[in-house]
Simulated assay, not measured.
Amino acid sequence: MQTKLIATLIAAGLSAASFAATEKFVLDSTHTYPSFEISHLGFSITRGMFKDTEGTLELDRAAKTGKLEATIKTTSLETGFDKRDEHVKSKDFFNVAEFPTAVVKADKFSFDGEKPVKAEGTLTLLGVTKPVTLNITPLKCDMRMGKDFVCGADVATVIKRSEWGMKAYVPFIGDDVKIAVQVEAIKQK
Rank of each mutant, 00 (worst) to 15 (best):
K160P: 08
I179A: 02
L125D: 05
V158I: 15
I173V: 12
A106S: 07
F172Y: 15
D60S: 14
Q182W: 00
A12T: 00
S18Q: 15
S162Q: 07
R84K: 04
E54P: 04
D82W: 00
T71A: 04
A16M: 13
A102T: 01
D148F: 14
V104S: 01
S18R: 15
G121D: 05
D148W: 14
G152Q: 01
C141S: 15
T101A: 06
T3Q: 15
S76I: 08
K108W: 13
F109I: 10
V183L: 06
K130C: 11
T65I: 04
A168G: 10
V181I: 03
F50G: 07
K24N: 06
I38A: 04
P100G: 05
D82Y: 01
V183Y: 07
A185E: 05
L134E: 02
K178A: 05
I159P: 03
K108T: 04
S110K: 13
T3S: 15
L126T: 08
L68C: 10
S15W: 15
F93E: 06
E86R: 13
V158S: 04
K140T: 12
V181M: 03
I136A: 00
A16H: 09
K140V: 03
V128D: 01
K140P: 10
S29N: 05
V104F: 09
A97I: 11
K167Q: 13
H40A: 09
T53F: 02
D85G: 10
G42E: 07
T101V: 11
F43A: 01
I72N: 08
H31S: 06
V155E: 02
L134R: 07
M1W: 15
G127Q: 05
D52L: 09
E98L: 02
D85Q: 09
G165Q: 03
F94P: 10
K91Y: 12
P171Y: 06
H87M: 10
I173M: 07
D142P: 08
W164S: 04
G113I: 05
T71K: 02
T65M: 05
T74Q: 05
